[in-house]
Design a protein around this nucleic acid. Structure first.
Length: 573
DNA sequence: GCCGTTTTCGGCCCGACTGTTTTCAGTCG
C-alpha cells in the first residue's frame, strides 16, 4: 500500500493532540509532534523507505516504537494505538486544540465537566456563561474562547508573503515614527521566508524609557489586544492577522533575533548544543552560569556552540545543524544572482503588458534576457496561440532583438501538456523556439500513475525544456495534483529537462523539499516569475526565498547563467 | 517516546504573559 508522508504525519499529530488532552507525559506528546515534523519534511515517502528496507530509526526523533508505528501505518493504512486512544478520548476534541487559548488541560476539563465535544456546543456553552463557572476558568477565558472560535472561522488560513510584507511595512513605518527606537526587524517565519505566515513577529531594540508597546497600540488597524507587557505585546489586526512586538535591549539584538526567528525546533537544537557546552541560551544572550558571555549578533550565538552562521531560510531543523557542524552548509543563491526570467506572458494572451513593456521592465531590473512564453491554443480562455500566431510572434521578436543591445528576448511558449502526454503545438513550430515551457493546466484529477506517465511522455518530446509549476498547487486554494515527483525529477535528469520553481506567491511550486531532492539528483531548476504584468517580475524575490529554503545554490539554478550558458543548458541531446 | 564524552535510566529549551489565584497553572512561541 502506498501511504504518503502527510497521512503519517497527520496521524502522529492526532496522537499528540489526543495524548495531550488525556494528560499524558508532555515529553511523550512532544515525541509524536517531533516525529510528525520529521516525516512531513522527508523528500522521500516513508513507504518507499520501507520498501527499500531502510532503517527508520536512523531518522531524527524516530526510535524503535515510532518506527514500528510508521511501519504499521504504511502496511495497514491505520494505527491501532490511535484507534485505541479514540475509544478513550473523543477525537472531535482535536478541533478544540486549534483554538487560541485552549490546550490539552482546558479541552479535557471542558469535555469532562460539560460533556461537550464539538465547536457548536462549545460556542453555545460560552454564550450561556457555563464555561466561566468551571474551576480554573473565568469570564475572560470564556470571552477569549468565543473570540478564538470566531477567529478560527474567519481567518483560519495563513496569509501569503505579499500581504505579510505589506502589513509588516506599515507597522514598521508606524513604529519608526516614535523616539528611542533602535532596530526594527521582522523575525519569525516571515524572515525564514516560509510560503505563508500565520502571524508577524516584529523585533524592536529600545532603551527602558521608550514606550514601544504604547506606540504600537496606537497603530490604527488593531482590532483586539491579546496581551500587553513590557517586552511583548500581541494584537489582532482588522485583517485578522496576529502581530507580536518584542522589545529587547540593544546588546541582546543577536540572541533575540535568533530566538524570535526560530524555527522553534531549530532553536531547541541550538540550545541543546548550548547545554552540552555548559551554556544557557535565551533571548537575552548566551550565559555561562550567571555571566553573560555574548549575544550582540546572531553570529556570536552560533559561534558560542561551535557553529558558523546559519541563514534564516535553513533554520527548520531539517539537517542544517549537522551540515553546519560538518562544514557542509550550502552557499545559498541570492536575488542578485538572477540574470533573467524564462517564463512570462504578454497581452497577446492573458498578460497585461506588451512584449516591449515587459522587455523594458526586465532590462530595468538589470537582466540579460527574458523569455516570452505565452499560452498555447488549448487554453482558449487566455486566447492561447495557435501555430500561425506563434510564428507571427517569433518574427516580431526577431525584429525586436535586432533593435536591442545587451539584451535578448528569448522566443518561447508555455505549451499545454495534453491528457495523452502530447504537446498542444506541433514540433515544426516548437523547434523554432529558444525555450519551451510545458504545463499541466487541466485534468488535475488523473490517478498518480496516469499523471506521472502523462508528464514523462511529454518530456519525451525533444523540444520539452522546462516543466512549469510541476505540482499545480495553489496555496490555500488547490491541493497539488497527485504525481510521483521523484519519478518526474528522475525523468528530467534522464532527458535533460529542467524543473521550474514558479515564483507566484500562491504557487511557489516546486516546494522546498522538492528543490532539495532535485538538487540531490542534480537536476537544474529555473526560478521563473510566470509574470502576467511588468510588476509581477518582482515576484522573483519569493521564488529565490523558496529556493533558499530548498538549499539551492547559484549553480543549481539555470537563470543565474549568462545567455550563452542558458542556451547550452536548454539544448537537449 | 527519544536518547546517550553524565549511555540503558533519568533527563528532556526557556521565558513571557494571562487569568485565576494568593503562589501558580496553562498556554504560547
Amino acid at each position: 500500500m502506498r501511504v504518503n508522508n502527510s497521512a503519517v504525519s497527520a496521524i502522529f499529530d492526532d496522537m499528540a493532540d489526543l495524548l495531550e488532552i488525556e494528560g499524558e507525559n508532555p515529553f511523550r506528546v512532544r515525541a509524536y509532534r517531533t516525529a510528525s515534523r520529521t516525516i512531513s519534511g522527508l523528500s522521500q515517502d516513508v513507504s518507499e523507505l520501507i520498501a527499500d528496507t531502510q532503517d527508520l530509526t536512523k531518522l531524527p526523533g524516530i526510535g524503535k516504537d515510532l518506527a514500528a508505528k510508521i511501519y504499521e501505518i504504511v502496511t495497514t493504512g491505520h494505527l491501532s494505538a490511535l484507534d485505541e486512544i479514540k475509544k478513550r478520548v473523543n477525537p472531535r476534541l482535536i478541533e478544540y486544540m486549534r483554538i487560541a487559548g485552549l490546550g490539552g488541560k482546558r479541552v479535557s476539563a471542558l469535555n469532562s465537566k460539560l460533556g461537550i465535544f464539538n465547536l457548536k456546543q462549545l460556542e453555545t456553552a460560552a454564550r450561556n456563561h457555563k464555561i466561566c463557572k468551571l474551576p480554573g476558568f473565568g469570564e475572560k477565558v470564556e470571552r477569549s474562547i468565543l473570540q478564538g472560535i470566531k477567529r478560527a472561522r474567519d481567518y483560519g488560513k495563513r496569509i501569503m508573503l505579499p500581504e505579510a510584507e505589506e502589513i509588516a511595512e506599515s507597522v514598521i513605518r508606524h513604529l519608526r515614527e516614535s523616539k528611542g527606537i533602535g532596530k526594527v526587524v521582522v523575525a519569525g517565519s516571515f524572515r525564514r521566508r516560509r510560503e505563508t505566515v500565520r502571524d508577524l513577529d516584529i523585533m524592536v531594540t529600545a532603551g527602558n524609557s521608550s514606550d514601544v508597546s504604547g506606540r504600537f497600540l496606537s497603530f490604527p488597524q488593531i482590532s483586539r489586544v491579546i496581551s500587553r507587557g513590557e517586552t511583548r505585546t500581541t494584537v489582532i489586526l482588522n485583517s485578522g492577522i496576529q502581530v507580536d512586538i518584542r522589545v529587547v535591549p540593544e546588546e541582546s539584538y543577536g540572541s533575540a533575533l535568533h530566538y524570535f526567528t526560530g524555527s522553534k525546533s531549530h532553536n531547541i537544537g541550538v540550545r541543546k548544543l548550548g547545554v552540552k557546552a555548559g551554556l544557557k541560551i535565551n533571548e537575552y544572550g548566551v550565559f555561562k552560569g550567571q555571566r553573560r558571555i555574548c549575544g550582540q549578533s546572531e553570529e556570536e550565538v552560533y559561534e558560542s556552540v561551535g557553529l558558523p552562521f546559519i541563514e534564516p531560510e535553513l533554520r527548520e531543523d531539517t539537517g542544517e545543524l549537522e551540515a553546519a557542524r560538518n562544514g557542509l552548509l550550502p552557499n545559498l543563491i541570492e536575488l542578485t544572482d538572477i540574470k533573467g526570467d524564462l517564463h512570462s506572458h504578454t497581452s497577446r494572451t492573458d498578460g497585461h503588458a506588451t512584449i516591449e513593456e515587459m522587455v523594458s521592465a526586465a532590462r530595468a531590473k538589470g537582466y540579460e534576457y527574458l523569455a516570452i512564453t505565452d499560452h498555447s491554443k488549448h487554453l482558449a480562455m487566455t486566447h492561447g496561440l495557435k501555430e500561425s500566431d506563434l510564428e507571427g510572434q517569433i518574427e516580431h521578436i526577431d525584429r525586436l532583438n535586432e533593435t536591442l543591445e545587451g539584451f535578448t528576448v528569448l522566443k518561447g511558449i508555455e505549451v499545454d501538456i495534453m491528457e495523452d502526454g502530447s504537446l498542444d503545438l506541433s514540433d515544426s513550430v516548437l523547434k523554432r523556439l529558444d525555450v519551451v515551457v510545458c504545463s499541466v493546466h487541466y485534468k488535475f484529477n488523473l490517478s498518480r500513475d496516469k499523471q506521472t506517465k502523462r508528464v514523462l511522455k511529454a518530456m519525451d518530446n525533444q523540444y520539452f525544456n522546462i516543466l512549469a509549476h510541476p505540482t499545480g498547487r495553489l496555496i490555500n486554494k488547490r491541493e497539488p495534483f497527485e504525481i510521483d515527483i521523484e519519478a518526474i525529477i528522475r525523468g528530467a535528469k534522464e532527458r535533460g529537462c529542467i524543473l521550474e520553481l514558479n515564483s507566484y506567491p500562491e504557487r511557489l511550486d516546486l516546494n522546498e523539499t522538492h528543490c532539495r531532492l532535485a538538487k540531490e539528483m542534480k537536476v537544474k531548476i529555473s526560478i521563473d516569475t510566470d509574470s502576467h504584468s511588468t510588476g509581477d517580475l518582482d515576484f522573483m524575490r519569493f521564488g529565490v526565498g523558496q529556493a533558499r529554503r530548498g538549499w539551492l545554490e547559484k549553480d543549481d539554478v539555470i537563470n543565474t547563467r549568462s545567455l550563452s550558458d542558458v542556451r547550452k543548458l536548454l539544448k537537449r541531446k
